[in-house]
Nucleic acid binder design. Structure first.
Length: 799
RNA sequence: GCCCGGGUGGCGAAAUUGGUAAACGCAAGGGACUUAAAAUCCCUUGGGGGCGACCCCUUACAGGUUCGAGUCCUGUCCCGGGCACCA
């Protein structure tokens, strides 16, 4: 028996990390790989705080999968990079009074060190940062492609404006109508913004979800976000001949439409307002405009609105019904006008009650008080359609009105076009030049990138334009078309554009004359496995699919889905709550890695709950993983090749291989680890383990705890890296060898357990059971009426 | 309000998808080794009853289907996430 060296994770892990670099262990041959497998994880935003536990949890889970695929014989490419542009970095830079251009590289250096320390199988040759001009050159190129295809356009739109921070805020940064940073009430401003026509792709984005292999939860979030509604546009005509188009999902209720509502911004309001109502309507429009976007959209307050003094004809009844303006109707959804059916819509009901407008029931829904919103009713007060089921009636009424040109079937989406301009500094400048003669001209490809200039005064101001707009020396340029005086667009693009295509760049980082090399792209894309958080379900994951479809349509890539397989991981919480600085419950991974080692910490994170559900971080449990590794360590240094091996231990080995293989494939890492622990517990019962009992375990452990696996592989006489080995296979016969314990029930109640050989026929099982003392008590002298037998599981005798 | 998840020991969690509830781990208690402690190893540990072999109860709550329900169905209550005057 040899001396057992002590297990010292810090020196051992440093040693293997250095070897992986020296031996190029994690660098597949991107041009010649025979079985390419692109293992992608969501690249981090390099915050000043460094990698947090949530990142570690996600990366470990993704890394385990990549290493597992590697052991199965794939050429795994596992790149990493940094999503370093954006408002978070910029705000932090403003706070500490430094330029993000100097801060970000420092943060990235910290991240790089942490990512190496946790043992990720990263191919560092292909690291990227979105802030690198060599990267954002191509982000701008993508903008230009969309612009040329007519998919990028500019329009005036409402934005959230924080008067204290003097900046535009994204919707996510507005909490209950206030700035998330300073708590100031947010104002609404109208600014010229660039948009991408993602709504043109709504149907494809939705349909595509049916074919891709994604976590169901993520698909649901995206479907809800796209928000498809089927209905019709109906036309209500005014005596002056103006046609007001409304969108409704309930054409079956048109006979109950007792008034119309226009959004305060609706273009017809001025023209249709009667003279005597003008002051009231104008005042109302001003009042609405002074409200911020968020508080206007809080739905449970009392409704406001004004009658504009004119009427329109209900196309079904022919009645003249009053037209109102009210801010519960939004200009940006549907047509900005609705037909109000107070009897069958909660909001219309509230409004009608408040302003004493007529309420007419047109759908009979037994047992439901007004407003009744059920679609499964029978029509009433609806002329020729009375007595018809609602769903039939909807179709027939649309057809009937369509004959007179007053209705068109229509599909409406909740999804808006993607606003991609930001009046900020820290992002890629939008590559557009404005010329008085030629208009908006895209920057020619040869002039890309439009470099972000290094400026000191990058603080946003009250003007509502980007800080770049204060730098004439930068924005004054010649028009690329006519050579005349022109100026650059000074807005930068949204961070989500940076991350919408990064997967295309990784395999091609060394190419400077093209965004992604066609041969590399064909070999490695689309991504084989993508793992990340559901917080990106509706932004990043939707935008990436959209950009991919556009590039596909334009012939730049040969697929329309970037991530055919995506799995969402769960959330790590602490003491029952999300980790956050304000709660003071943030866990810093560095301390744990320092104290326990990366292997123990990785396994602990994977053991604390199901990977796809997350779990509560309670560090008492971490010692259990360490004990397991120590036990295995000692066992590996005390192997004896003369030790006798029981049939039970062999059977357990094959069961363990079977379970760890299938659980790792399906990301059920917690139970895979439990299975390896069980196997070690079985081996412990032997005097010593034999080498051939341990080597398969070391290989299976390698994705989870790569450093100790390498060390033990070497200690057991293995050649090269453990990652050059094959994932062990199991023998189904051996896995199911040996006896099983079956439950014996009498009338469904457990009365005994019998240990029997596998595959025992029913007849023999019944005989054995009837001979059992504790069963006999319940069946003696009584006739067994029925027998239910599930082989290797259970026998139920009904008497 | 609508759409997804989820509710199992003191704790984190398992449960072959309708078949022995609580695997694995933590914590706790007891024991071995030790002058002692740490580490390690062994035993016990869902609740209740009985000296005992054993018996009864238990997966948020109330019903139902079934030989059999943590798992399926109906209703209710909580917790987490997403969307939200979306017509």
């Amino acid at each position: 028996m040899r001396n057992i060296p002590s297990y010292d994770p810090s020196s051992l892990e440093a040693k293997w990390q250095a070897r992986w670099v020296e031996r190029h262990t994690n660098e597949p041959d991107l041009d010649r790989a025979a079985r390419p497998f692109y293992n992608l994880m969501m690249f981090p935003y390099p915050s000043a705080e460094g990698l947090h536990v949530g990142n570690m949890f996600a990366f470990t889970g993704a890394d385990i999968y990549g290493r597992f695929k590697r052991l199965q014989g794939f050429d795994v490419f596992e790149p990493i990079g940094f999503d370093a542009f954006g408002i978070h970095s910029e705000n932090y830079a403003l706070q500490v009074g430094k330029n993000p251009a100097t801060l970000i590289p420092q943060n990235i250096a910290t991240f790089r060190r942490q990512l190496r320390q946790f043992g990720g199988m990263y191919d560092w040759r292909h690291e990227l940062s979105t802030t690198d001009p060599a990267y954002y050159k191509w982000t701008q190129w993508i903008f230009v492609q969309l612009f040329k295809a007519g998919l990028a356009y500019k329009k005036r739109a409402a934005v959230n404006w924080c008067p204290k921070d003097k900046t535009v805020l994204a919707n996510e940064q507005v909490i209950d109508g206030r700035c998330e940073r300073c708590g100031t009430a947010v104002e609404q401003r109208f600014l010229d913004q660039w948009f991408f026509r993602i709504t043109d792709f709504a149907e494809r984005l939705l349909a595509n979800l049916d074919h891709i292999d994604w976590s169901a939860s993520t698909k649901t979030l995206q479907r809800n976000w796209i928000g498809r509604s089927e209905g019709a546009e109906l036309i209500f005509e005014t005596p002056s001949g103006k046609k007001i188009t409304v969108f409704t999902t309930r054409p079956d209720t048109v006979f109950g439409a007792t008034y119309l509502v226009l959004a305060p911004e609706h273009p017809f309001v001025d023209e249709l307002t009667a003279v005597e109502q003008r002051p009231a309507v104008k005042a109302y429009q001003r009042e609405v405009q002074s409200k911020d976007i968020v508080s206007r959209r809080v739905g449970d307050k009392t409704k406001t609105g004004v009658f504009i003094g004119s009427y329109a004809r209900n196309p079904a009844t022919g009645e003249a019904i009053p037209i109102w303006v009210a801010d519960y109707v939004l200009m940006e959804y549907g047509t900005g006008a609705i037909m109000a059916v107070p009897a069958h819509d909660k909001r219309d009901f509230e409004f009608a009650t408040q302003f004493k407008l007529p309420i007419r029931q047109v759908v009979e829904t037994p047992g439901e008080p007004l407003p009744s919103v059920s679609e499964d009713g029978t029509l009433m007060n609806s002329g020729a359609f009375d007595g018809m089921p609602g769903r039939d009636a909807a179709r027939k009424i649309v057809a009937w009105l369509a004959e007179r040109g007053l209705a068109t079937p229509r599909v409406q989406y909740r999804l808006h076009d993607w606003c991609i301009s930001r009046q900020r500094y820290w992002g890629p400048p939008i590559p557009i030049i404005y010329c008085e003669k030629c208009g908006a001209v895209p920057v020619p490809e040869k002039d890309l990138p439009v470099e972000l200039p290094l400026i000191d005064d990058f603080r946003p101001d009250d003007t509502g334009v980007s800080p770049l707009a204060r730098h004439e020396e930068w924005y004054f340029v010649k028009c690329p078309q006519c050579g005349g005086e022109a100026r650059r667009e000074t807005d930068v693009s949204d961070t989500f554009l940076d991350s919408a295509w990064y997967h295309l760049r990784y395999p091609s980082t060394e190419f400077h004359d093209q965004p992604f090399d066609p041969a590399r792209t064909t070999k490695w894309l689309p991504v084989s496995s993508y793992i990340g958080g559901n917080e990106h379900a509706v932004l990043h994951l939707l935008y990436a699919r959209f950009i991919c479809m556009v590039l596909n349509d334009l012939g730049h890539v040969q697929f329309d889905t970037p991530y055919p397989k995506f799995r969402a991981h769960g959330l790590i919480i602490k003491d029952g709550a999300k980790m956050s600085k304000s709660r003071g419950n943030v866990v810093v991974p560095d301390t744990y890695i320092h104290q326990w080692g990366a292997d123990t910490f990785r396994m602990y994170l994977m053991f604390l709950g199901p990977f796809q559900e997350g779990g509560d971080f309670r560090d008492e449990g971490i010692v259990g993983i360490r004990r397991f590794l120590e036990r295995l360590w000692a066992m590996a240094y005390q192997t004896s090749d003369t030790a006798s091996v029981t049939a039970q231990a062999t059977s357990k080995l094959h069961q363990t291989i079977r379970k760890v293989s299938s659980d790792t494939e399906s990301l059920q890492y917690n139970t895979a680890i439990a299975a390896m622990m069980e196997y070690v517990n079985v081996l412990k019962e032997q005097d010593a383990a034999r080498t051939d009992q341990l080597t398969p375990l070391i290989v299976m452990l390698a994705p989870y705890a790569p450093h100790i696996a390498e060390e033990l592989w070497e200690a057991l006489g293995g050649k090269g890296s453990v990652f050059e080995q094959c994932w062990p296979s199991f023998d189904e016969r051996l896995a199911s060898a040996g006896d099983v314990e079956i439950a014996v029930q009498v009338n469904g109640k457990l009365r005994s357990r019998l240990t029997v050989r596998r595959g025992l026929p029913q007849q023999e099982a019944v005989e054995l059971a009837l001979a059992d003392e504790s069963v006999k008590k319940y069946v003696d002298g009584i006739k067994v009426k029925k027998v239910i037998y599930i082989q290797d599981r259970l026998l139920n005798l009904l008497v």
